[in-house]
């Protein structure tokens, strides 16, 4: 446990000292402020535009952080051989993976919190009214980010950063195309439909975390929706971490 915390803390510290993170975050804050300008030219649809753009912006910026920092998590350590120092200590390789996951999760928590603060401030300035749904959506966004961290981490444990960034991006796109895939499957023959149905159940379904639309139109969340979404994320992330650990256990340096 101590080692997990140490690795997580170290990952967090490394990433928040990285200037790249600040560059991305700076653009994120600019984006939050830009929502005001874009909102003002929308024929009084500014609250909608600010909510849409704000929530999407928070996600996109953090996703960029995952693509740039997250996909490096393991491969950079292998590249620079800093992993030698860690893995020759009396710890399990799973400890390393879990620590990395929580380290980046902590970083994303901080960046999400900073951007959310600005977002909420913009909403307050615009007298948009803060419904609890906004906070729910931010939490769901964060859960989706954790999901993507686990995916990036898994790829990072066996491929180069660029490749794992591409794979993570691909998973993100697939994860949000489940509705289209299902629709496509309905028109196909039984074999293709079966394959697609299986695929939509097995592949990560990120649309489950997308409640941005519900927020804008104030459609309340139900208890079971929240519960099942959290259970889904927790179990899937665990499986991804187990896969990542097993890949790393076979790795030689």
């Amino acid at each position: 446990m101590k080692a997990v915390i140490a690795i997580a803390h170290n990952t967090f510290r490394e990433s928040i000292r990285d200037r790249l993170l600040y560059a991305i975050l700076f653009f994120g804050l600019l984006l939050m402020l830009a929502t005001i300008i874009l909102g003002s030219i929308s024929l009084e649809q500014d609250v909608k535009v600010i909510k849409d753009l704000g929530l999407a912006g928070i996600f996109i910026i953090n996703f960029l952080i995952i693509l740039s920092v997250g996909t490096n998590l393991v491969s950079k350590e292998i590249d620079r051989k800093s992993i030698y120092t860690v893995l020759t200590k009396p710890i399990e390789r799973s400890t390393f993976i879990i620590g990395k996951f929580f380290g980046l999760a902590a970083t994303l928590f901080v960046t999400t919190a900073i951007m959310s603060t600005v977002f909420v401030a913009v909403l307050l300035v615009k007298h948009a009214g803060l419904s609890p749904l906004i906070f729910a959506s931010l939490v769901f966004t964060y859960i989706e980010l954790l999901f993507l961290v686990a995916i990036a981490l898994m790829f990072s444990s066996f491929t180069a950063p660029v490749a794992s960034a591409l794979y993570t991006l691909a998973f993100f796109l697939i994860g949000h195309s489940m509705t289209s895939l299902t629709r496509f499957g309905e028109q196909a023959g039984p074999f293709v439909r079966g394959t697609i149905t299986a695929g939509t159940h097995l592949l990560p379904n990120l649309e489950k975390f997308n409640i941005k639309n519900q927020v804008v139109y104030e459609v309340a969340l139900s208890g079971p929706q929240v519960l099942w979404t959290v259970v889904y994320a927790a179990t899937y992330i665990t499986v991804l971490i187990i896969i990542a650990t097993n890949i790393l256990k076979r790795q030689e340096f």
Binding site: L38, S42, Q45, K48, V49, D52, L53, A56, F59, F172, H176, L206, E207, N210, K212, N213, V216
Partner: peptide, 8 residues
């Protein structure tokens, strides 16, 4: 994932 944003 970005339908609202594209609509905007």
């Amino acid at each position: 994932g970005f339908r609202n944003l594209t609509a905007d």
